Simulated scan of single mutants.
Amino acid sequence: MTTSRATLDGDRPGTGPTLPPGGQRRRLHLAGLPKPVARARTYAAQALADWSWPTGPDGGQDDIVLLVAELVANALLHAGGPVDLVLDASEARLRIEVTDRSTDLPVPRRPHRPGLPGGHGLFIVQRAADRWGAVPHDDGKTVWAEIDAPRPPSGG
């Protein structure tokens, strides 16, 4: 049996990720694991590499791994720990979801005070994500962030 692999062009500027038709959803169960932030970062970096997600300055892999780390760290520090990390990638966007067991919705510290310790996680999420929010459910909540996929340059 021969396995073929599509050409991965995600490292060229302006190209989108290489995904299976319809995108892909990956889940990492984090509840009870030691070092959930580090595990989530590694998991996200591997998924982005597998998808050949572009590495550019806007919505690149480093920004996405930072978003994952911030969302998981917030769940760890403020919500009793993360339960699951979900990465849902499509041709149009990447959605990051972190579920925890707390029903308290996140509220950014206002005003943001860069010179003081603490309160920077949601500010980073707001700056790095195209959209973010939180959805309460019976067992806690899911905090999510979305990054739009880079678009190929138009014209020529």
Score class of each variant (00 low, 15 high):
36 P>L: 03
54 P>I: 03
48 L>G: 00
77 L>N: 15
128 A>N: 08
113 R>P: 01
97 E>I: 01
52 S>F: 04
99 T>Q: 11
92 A>E: 15
91 E>K: 13
106 P>S: 07
8 L>G: 12
95 R>M: 08
25 R>Q: 12
134 A>H: 01
115 G>R: 12
45 A>N: 10
127 R>T: 15
16 G>I: 05
46 Q>Y: 08
19 L>D: 06
72 V>A: 07
33 L>Y: 00
150 P>C: 06
94 L>V: 03
28 L>W: 04
1 M>H: 12
32 G>R: 04
119 G>N: 06
124 I>D: 08
87 L>G: 03
128 A>F: 12
87 L>F: 08
97 E>M: 08
26 R>M: 14
73 A>G: 08
85 L>M: 09
51 W>G: 00
104 D>E: 15
82 P>S: 04
126 Q>W: 01
30 L>D: 02
16 G>N: 06
19 L>S: 06
128 A>S: 07
125 V>C: 01
109 R>M: 11
152 P>E: 08
113 R>V: 10
44 A>E: 05
104 D>G: 08
142 T>N: 01
124 I>M: 10
137 H>G: 12
73 A>C: 04
64 I>W: 02
8 L>A: 13
51 W>T: 03
78 H>I: 01
36 P>A: 03
57 P>A: 13
57 P>C: 03
1 M>K: 09
47 A>W: 05
3 T>I: 14
69 A>Y: 02
104 D>H: 13
133 G>M: 07
23 G>R: 10
143 V>A: 05
77 L>F: 11
112 H>Y: 15
91 E>N: 13
105 L>M: 12
86 V>G: 00
144 W>H: 06
29 H>R: 14
130 D>N: 13
52 S>I: 04
135 V>S: 11
63 D>Y: 02
93 R>N: 08
41 R>C: 11
141 K>G: 01
145 A>W: 07
14 G>I: 06
136 P>W: 02
52 S>Q: 06
24 Q>V: 13
39 R>L: 15
98 V>E: 02
99 T>A: 14
35 K>E: 15
145 A>F: 07
4 S>R: 14
50 D>Y: 05
46 Q>E: 13
108 P>V: 06
43 Y>S: 07
141 K>S: 05
86 V>P: 02
139 D>R: 14
50 D>P: 03
91 E>L: 14
66 L>K: 04
132 W>Q: 02
22 G>E: 13
52 S>N: 10
118 G>S: 15
40 A>P: 01
127 R>D: 09
148 D>N: 10
13 P>I: 08
68 V>F: 02
90 S>C: 10
64 I>K: 04
151 R>N: 04
73 A>W: 02
121 G>L: 05
124 I>R: 07
147 I>S: 03
151 R>M: 09
8 L>P: 03
125 V>W: 04
142 T>R: 10
51 W>E: 01
118 G>F: 14
9 D>R: 14
52 S>R: 00
4 S>N: 12
62 D>S: 12
39 R>H: 12
145 A>V: 05
64 I>V: 15
150 P>E: 01
124 I>Q: 06
7 T>Q: 13
64 I>G: 00
1 M>C: 09
96 I>G: 03
49 A>D: 13
74 N>Y: 10
53 W>D: 00
149 A>W: 06
54 P>Y: 02
4 S>I: 14
143 V>E: 00
135 V>R: 14
33 L>T: 12
81 G>A: 05
68 V>I: 03
126 Q>C: 00
50 D>E: 15
28 L>A: 11
101 R>M: 05
98 V>I: 06
151 R>E: 12
135 V>T: 15
29 H>I: 09
